[in-house]
Write a protein that binds this DNA or RNA. Structure first.
Lengths: 146, 146
DNA sequence: TATTGTTATACTCTATAACTATA
DNA sequence: TATAGTTATAGAGTATAACAATA
């Protein structure tokens, strides 16, 4: 029998982090998906298709997500002058405020989750987790291997 | 300026794990919430109220979740003989099969996410993550401190 | 009175399929 | 033909408020 303690622990950690994410989103009167959309727009791609790929969503789901964000005045669609089919999304002032606020609050609360650990432990944990998340893996669209 | 690398890395790790969870759920033709419900029933509490607290859901949301699981033949409600208001949920054979199958597949794919690391690193990571998830924290109902 | 669970309702998120407009 | 994005539709998940039955 294999040792699956680590995987189980990581799944539980992920649930805890997701809960923090959800609670912070609620404080900003938004859903986690809306917050994720706003935060991604802070630094990532801004084209509809690109973003839907990055989020692992169908394009039609992306349309709805952006519709609701736009209706709430958090983002605006901007047409791409070079490709008249395409559009990107940009944060409004309010959207940016929420994105930055939620990001820093999530960060703070995840730090609180980690709690007091030695500088050495923190460095080790950080480098181990970085190793995992930076390992190249199949794109979102491709089914995971079994 | 604080160092928030660790928190950011943990959030991204949580997203990766959630994605694995979602993809595995899809393989079993269920939603992540249904799978979580089934897996919790394998070992955790089985009362409606207890489970809704554990999952951080309103009781009415729990009703809907269980309704759909029951309609699919994955669980059944059982009345509590000692308290005629209450009921618990039990896995059907099919529900148990799915719970076990999904659990082992999630575990395997999270292991794959971790990839090849030394036994030492694995042990360190495991103990650090365990430390985080086993730290006592406020119940789900209580708002997190700010 | 307090608790357990349900119902009614409204909204969000998501996917599939079919569509429009542009490349 | 292929790609970017939308629309229509259906189902799932969630919360709030009001309710029934039991403790």
């Amino acid at each position: 029998m294999e040792n699956t303690q680590l995987a189980t622990a990581l799944v539980r950690l992920a649930h805890l982090v997701s809960r923090v994410y959800g609670e912070v989103s609620k404080e900003f009167e938004a859903t986690p998906q809306q917050i994720q959309l706003l935060c991604m727009t802070l630094g990532g791609p801004t084209g509809m298709s690109e973003m839907s790929r990055a989020l692992g969503l169908e394009r039609s789901s992306m349309t709805g997500l952006v519709d609701r964000a736009e209706r709430r005045g958090l983002v605006v669609r901007v047409r791409d002058p070079h490709d008249r089919r395409a559009c990107g999304i940009e944060l409004t002032d309010q959207g940016r405020k929420i994105a930055l606020g939620a990001h820093s609050k999530v960060t703070a609360q995840v730090e609180a989750l980690v709690g007091e650990i030695s500088a050495d432990d923190r460095e080790r944990l950080e480098s181990l987790v970085m190793g995992i998340i930076h390992t190249p893996r199949p794109t979102t669209d491709a089914p995971l291997q079994t």
